[in-house]
Design a protein around this nucleic acid. Structure first.
Lengths: 209, 209, 209, 209
DNA sequence: AATGAATGAGGATTCATTCAT
DNA sequence: GATGAATGAATCCTCATTCAT
């Protein structure tokens, strides 16, 4: 018996949350994080402000939901890559590409997404932020590469952090300056440096052969 | 004639601004950017709210002052490195070290400093933000390295952006997780990857066979 | 369907606005226009400051409402006279009487009403101010009189402006000096001069010689 | 001995007040009454805010001074007319002309001047306001006219009040609508009505001769 | 006497949250 | 459960007035 009612409730609840998600993203896009008020989210979601509070205990909780909800597809896509058959360098490249595409697509809520409201305000569950989980996964890939012998034995977590930071920074830069690069160009630029570094290959080594 | 009165006035003014700077940093540290109200800054600086407005036309202006004031020493130190006699790789390493030391030291206002209030709220003079100027300078150094033949011919500005983003990301990571690395370790980790990449040198492998 | 909820809402809304009107008039009376703060209006109206802003977007809008609300009965009464069957001189007299009664009755908010906040701050719709609409209507009546041949061919709008200004001035004078005249006396005094002028009739003089 | 010092002091004082007058008028013109702050007046007058308070006990007092000072020339000119040899109708016309010229010339501070700050805020000495003294003088002239037999025996003070109110109203109207009339036209329009009224001369009387 | 920095009460406005219907 | 009016603390900013120099 309860099953029926429960399912119904859950369904309604998730429909409402979906509406809230879309409304919140619209508001975030139009008014920025500081301009995102419960009033506006309610209006944009087509529901009463009070209903927002039936769904979420506080604005903080609502924003965390929106954040997680927005991040979910990216995380899923990355999971697929991570569990896939590619080698370390290819996985890294694929992930960088996913991040880049994701960031560009969500430009409007970029700041909100990247600056990780949840994390900032009371870093609840660090593992939930897109960045944190990306770092863990990338770290694992780098370790894989090191084990495979294709990567140098670096501090994998530090490298992962740098990689993701650099990816974000690159997109931020593009947004700030307004110039837009092609995906291929951007991804290559980033992975090129991370895989091969800035230093020119030492001629001496070649000569020693 | 004016010297007397002017000197006095300037002195008092700079003393007040110093007090405001310290008060603001304290508030920023304790309450975060969004918790930084004029009331709190006034109280923390030991002056009346109105006096803040005798000194700064608006909260925005006050925050810009604090930001610039906080960033100034780092910029000066980097300028010195840039204009110095080191080669490109050494300069890069030195700058990464300066950034790291600076960020760790100013941990408290980190978010505020890096997220560049000024830039966010109405990107005044983009060149004035610490990050932007660092990118320009690092870009120049990379170009220098390319010309010297010690760096590969990469997109210098993109690389600079990545480098600075990675440096910031690294410190953010440390703050978030609580683990603290030594300066040498961190700097080496970062420059190691940026200079030599993740990929294991294929030549050495070939030679070792 | 909507009727139920809508009626209720409208009723509540108009009750609130009524309360605001009365509160605002009380504050206006006690503290004058410049002493009329949102805090005081809220307190006097028996509601929270925030509720005022649920009803009116700004202080300006609230004041405009109070103004219009206060002016409405007078305008309606004048409309009735204008559309009535009286001749021009009678209409003028009737209108002057209405104005006078109205001004005396609303002495407390006199300054506020006459100095036309709305007009002053951003003359929205000039036609809405009591004075402006009175001038238009009186102008029409004077033109009617001119056509009827009972009035001299004067500049009707200028005359209307003078008439209304004089009516207001007369009441202002009474308020300032504290002496109160009877309605009949005051109206006769005003219409007497406007209809027949100050100059003694020359015909009588000629006849008396 | 004191004479010398006293004269000096008085001279300096009146020079300062002159400067304040000009500064205040400039500020009033540029920022309106509500935008007229002591800071701005001090700056515009080229003196320190503190000095303003050596000269005037309060802002109120300063504004009263400015008001009176601005009104003085008009009052003097009217005095001349009043004491002159003209007959009542001519005096009235002359005074209306003076008012009109004065109002147009001081358009910028019109509101301030006419709405009589001093009177409004605590009608100190009613006789000092331009309007009040004008009314007294015009009342005297009308009484003169009545005695001369050229005016009908009306309530002189009420008529005077109406006349001055109508004059002010006429100019206000012009300012509001933007259309500007010639002095002659405006004065004639006003005096025409006040002297001869709106009513057409009764044909019946002429016929009865 | 002149100065202008310091004061702090006061004002308009916003918004997360509650709660009666 | 849904609604949205009510709340009032919190925020930024202004400005007349004082007073130490």
């Amino acid at each position: 018996m309860t099953t029926l009612a429960e399912r119904r409730k859950e369904l309604l609840d998730s429909m409402m949350k979906e509406a809230v998600y879309e409304g919140a993203v619209a508001v975030l896009t139009r008014h920025g994080l500081s301009g995102t008020t419960m009033d506006r989210v309610a209006a944009e979601s087509g529901m009463a402000k009070g209903s927002l509070y039936n769904c979420f205990r506080s604005k903080q909780e609502l924003l965390e939901f929106v954040h997680d909800r927005a991040i979910a597809p990216l995380r899923a896509a990355i999971d697929e890559v991570v569990d896939g058959p590619l080698n370390a360098a290819e996985k890294l490249t694929a992930i960088v590409r996913l991040w880049r595409e994701y960031l560009v697509e969500h430009q409007a809520v970029f700041e909100f997404l990247i600056n990780d409201v949840a994390a900032k305000q009371r870093l609840r569950d660090t593992e939930l932020t897109a960045r944190a989980s990306a770092i863990r996964q990338i770290g694992a890939i780098i370790r894989q590469g090191i084990q495979e012998g294709t990567f140098r034995p670096v501090d994998a977590d530090a490298a992962a952090q740098m990689l993701i930071s650099a990816a974000i920074g690159m997109v931020e830069q593009e947004f700030a300056t307004g110039e837009r690069r092609t995906v291929d160009d951007a991804v290559e630029s980033l992975t090129g440096i991370f895989l091969y570094g800035l230093a020119a290959p030492p001629v001496a080594q070649a000569a020693s052969l």
